[in-house]
Design a protein around this nucleic acid. Structure first.
Lengths: 229, 229
DNA sequence: CATTGTTCTATTGTATACAATCTCTTTCTG
DNA sequence: CAGAAAGAGATTGTATACAATAGAACAATG
């Protein structure tokens, strides 16, 4: 019996509905579908070789996440993430990631701490080598471990959502080697604070980490990847 | 053409699925269903006179909200809100409601400001009279107006969720006349700060409002309404 | 008696059929 | 020709039928 994770695998990957949901979510967040695009149940179903039933269920979930808007009897339209949303997300994440780091400092388990250290180590390695794809993976994993370590189902759920919403953007920013290195340095500092149980310090650092990330996005004009494109 | 609200009526109330969703959500948040209860598609459908299809779609949405957990091929089980969740929600809301008040101070429209003033006025009236049900309604409305006035779809969405999660608890706390009066006073102060465009002040007051509300819950032992019951 | 294997039933997962609604085109009318 | 009315087609909303799976009861076996 593994860990008793209540919320992680909300959408099981092995049902047809789960596959449809993950595919559509991925496509929306990665920018394949653009804001305003209409999604038709039948054509989506045909693309994936399934009937309308699982597609409809996936639509309902995407609607609740705010990624699409369903107009009754009319259709489903992609909402996507706008530049304004990105700004809001980073400003909201600042205090929440701070809170999360504080709680992680209080609750992190030995195993989680070890995995976090490994993640930071590997991330630094790939940053130096300029492997941006792996960078992105370990960067994501760092945050996920911290979310889980907070011991708060609510906080973990919210932060995971926000984190995924900006995942496309993070792929772009981390391809800049300089920012990648800086981000890692910040992760390490946060980790040290968590490891030594310094909640205040961890909170401050994690919060600042978000503001730095957003500053970086602004100063490099990465935000243009949204809305226009 | 009314306001261009993207996220408010996510679940249209007039479809069968919308009705099922709202009914189940209400019943879970109000405590009619308890954590661990199993929900069967057929029996829920029979209760409401609908087939399994809309029930299933509602289940998927409730799952995504974290209110129920669906185990593939097995069943749907109520997760509900625990005492720990309540604590987390208030501590997360503290900075977010602060941020929201700040943004509202920057973006609130004339109409929203007027409605907010009306809401506070009516709320004070009912608080004095001891009408706890109306109290609760206007108290909720105050926060919703502030969420909308923030001009942030993301923040509004998150705060609305949190607010609804603790709505049952708020019904109990506001039935205490003293807390009701105090809460109103805090609302009025937040409103004044928003009206005069003092973002810093609004942020501080709204954040403190949350901490006060949670202190009140703790000191009166209201938290026991969860988990046990 | 314990344990394993099997069958049966209840429940969920998916596909399809039918109903309701919307939209766009066409036709009618002034 | 403009505009309204009507009809066809496409799309979503809901119900039902069938398939797959899990769990329980029960029988068989050592």
């Amino acid at each position: 019996m593994t860990k008793n994770s209540v919320k992680n695998e909300v959408t099981d990957k092995y049902s047809l509905r789960g596959r449809v949901f993950n595919k559509l979510r991925e496509d929306i967040l990665s920018g394949i579908y653009r804001a305003g695009d209409e999604l038709r149940e039948v054509s989506i179903g045909e693309d994936l070789g399934v009937s309308r039933t699982p597609v409809r269920e996936a639509f309902r979930q995407l609607e609740l996440e705010g990624l699409i808007q369903i107009i009754p009897n009319k259709g489903a339209y992609v909402t996507g993430i706008t530049a304004k949303d990105v700004k809001d997300i980073y400003l909201m994440r600042a205090p929440l990631e701070g809170l999360c780091a504080r709680w992680a400092a209080e609750n992190i388990s030995k195993e989680q701490m070890e995995e976090m250290e490994e993640t930071v180590f590997l991330s630094e390695f790939h940053a130096m080598k300029g492997h941006s794809e792996q960078m992105w993976t370990y960067d994501s994993r760092f945050h996920e471990i911290m979310y889980e370590a907070s011991g708060s189902k609510m906080l973990e759920h919210s932060l995971k959502d926000y984190h995924q919403y900006v995942s496309r953007l993070r792929k772009v920013t981390l391809s800049d080697k300089e920012r990648g290195m800086a981000s890692n340095k910040e992760h390490r500092a946060i980790m040290e604070a968590i490891k030594s149980g310094q909640g205040d310090m961890a909170e401050r650092l994690a919060s600042q980490h978000m503001l730095n990330a957003y500053d970086n996005i602004l100063s490099h004009g990465f935000i243009e990847h949204f809305d226009a494109e």
